[in-house]
Design a protein around this nucleic acid. Structure first.
Lengths: 333, 333
DNA sequence: ATGAAAGCGCTAACAC
DNA sequence: GTGTTAGCGCTTTCAT
């Protein structure tokens, strides 16, 4: 930078000002500086800039795993949102380990990044105090509540209720929930979605039959979807509508139903939540709910940038808009 | 750090030495320093450290899109490999844009990260000169050759040849390639894999029939797999074995074959390349090739770290091991 | 085995 | 409008 200043015949501060788009500068000065920069092939050293300015231009994104399509697609959106604002994203894949989730919080203190977008899956309520601090932070998902930081949430109850209402409106009378849980001690996406399903049934005066709610142990994969359908049908239960916990589960449900020569949607309607990229390509294509990934990404990044200016924000809950996308597995009625 | 030094009754250099595991230190000194660190809750400022030391502890990973399962799974492996070595990964998702791929190269000059793992998809041979420089770099994939940097590759020809040989050994006599290209002016994964398929047929004295090689325009999705099967069968061609360009394509192929009541593997065997997570859960589960993602990730990160010490490495080509994973769609013979 | 001091390359007051 | 200067918090010779 000194070299640039010297070649342009100005001071380093003028070069710095120019680089920061300082408005009050003589056009000729700006021009000289730009010429010197071009001649020398000068590039600002972001490390030095960040040491001095206190900003790195980086935001940490801590998610369970990129192997899960939902998180990969969310990460993609967050990276795009950050890039539009001139920021980069440092991804930490935490597996499902509490230690690694905590580590990403601790790492913030070393100022490698300007903020943290955290999607906890293993942290416990007891860990909440460790999430205090003045580092810009945004939480994702329903694992933790009461953290003093903005929290991006999805209308889980409402989404599942609307889907179930849709099935009822379409004439379904025996509606199963694949990947649900009727009794739960803490809030989880499963529990909330099941709650919406129950609400819709009750509002319609329909019974809630436990044998229609199949739970998943461990990760919600499409293999689980296959197994749930198999065992439900084996036990003689025969639904005419299925709400799936997620698209991944739905993929398995669709496959197994086709395996069993069930016509979709004629015999059984299938609806789900996540609207993965892949869901438009399944056979039949899947009716699913777009959870507002794009909006979540934009709001999360914006919130980090705002907190950077105004300080850590308090524990507000922000709900993203959703949209049911009707496809072949359950057309609109 | 000054505070820690003061509290511990030592100099800042001793604190720095301690933090860098300098060996020749009196145990009591080390202890005093650690106590002061604990008492003050001191955390090293990585920004300052990186300005002075020239290292950021970050590596850029530039890939087309996290939405593509192959890249998401590769990214996951690279993040894990980097973490094991105390490094973080900054992901740049380049879409399929040449500008963004170039941007990630330029960004390196600003020293935000210590190296770049680049998977180009849109760069052209004319861009190769811009990839010179002294920044640690590793290339991924078959888009560009002749770049002066280590290049991680997959045995595309060999993998496709082995898969085809397997089908031949299993008794298949009419083997299709879904997502191949017989004539191509540049090296691409499609062209190379098709080449391996052709080699195997020729070695077995079997004819190469163009109507058995179906090309894909645009992104290789499972929807394309569905369409290719539909149109091939519609035109009266009836293979007894199918090699798919990728697992995503294979997912569509499997679905469409089942839709058409074809028994797999009895009537048609299906094999593919990528071994995505999901491939073990399809119905039937998919015989596929594990391309050594793990090894690629390890070698790529190691190479960056080595280049950091020894300077930019020359343009060597490194091939990762692969492994055919036999599943239901085509069991081993 | 430990300390003093000189920067790394930049930004931000503040002076002019 | 532009220049001077004092650090940001750390690492790294080089002394001792």
């Amino acid at each position: 930078m000194i070299d640039v200043a010297r070649l342009a015949g100005v001071s380093v501060s003028s070069v710095s000002n120019y680089l920061s788009n300082y408005p009050y500068m003589k056009p000729t000065t700006k021009q000289h500086i730009q010429e010197a920069i071009d001649a020398l092939g000068y590039v600002t050293n972001e490390r030095a800039r960040s040491l001095r300015s206190g900003r790195t231009g980086l935001i940490s994104l801590s998610i369970p795993s990129l192997t899960q399509a939902y998180f990969a697609e969310l990460a993609e959106e967050i990276i795009a949102a950050a890039r539009r604002r001139g920021y980069g994203i440092l991804i930490e894949s935490t597996g499902f380990s509490r230690e690694r989730e905590l580590a990403s919080v601790t790492a913030m203190a070393s100022k490698t990044t300007d903020g943290l977008i955290l999607s906890p899956l293993a942290l416990e309520n007891a860990d909440i105090p460790r999430l205090r601090g003045d580092v810009p932070m945004v939480l994702l998902g329903e694992r933790l509540f009461g953290v003093p930081a903005p929290h991006m949430l999805v209308h889980n109850v409402e989404v599942a209720r609307k889907l179930t209402e849709h099935l009822i409106a379409a004439g379904c009378r025996t509606i199963a929930f694949m990947g649900g849980v009727l009794e739960s001690d803490h809030m989880s996406a499963e529990a909330l979605r099941t709650k919406g399903y129950v609400q819709a049934l009750e509002a319609a005066g329909m019974p809630v039959r436990p044998e229609l709610v199949a739970g998943i142990v461990g990760e919600a994969t499409s293999r689980k979807g296959v197994e749930l359908v198999e065992s439900m049908f084996a036990s003689g239960v025969r639904p005419d509508g299925i709400v799936c916990y997620s698209d991944l589960v739905a993929f398995g449900v669709l496959r197994q139903l086709r395996e069993m020569q069930v016509r979709i949607p004629e015999d059984i309607r299938v609806v789900s939540i996540d609207n993965l990229d892949e869901s438009q390509y399944t056979v039949p294509s899947l009716t699913s709910v777009e959870l507002g990934r794009h909006e979540i990404a934009e709001l999360a990044v914006d919130s980090i940038l705002r907190q950077l200016k105004e300080g850590r924000a308090p524990g507000e809950e922000i709900y993203a808009d959703y949209r049911i996308i009707h496809r072949e597995s359950s057309p609109a009625v």
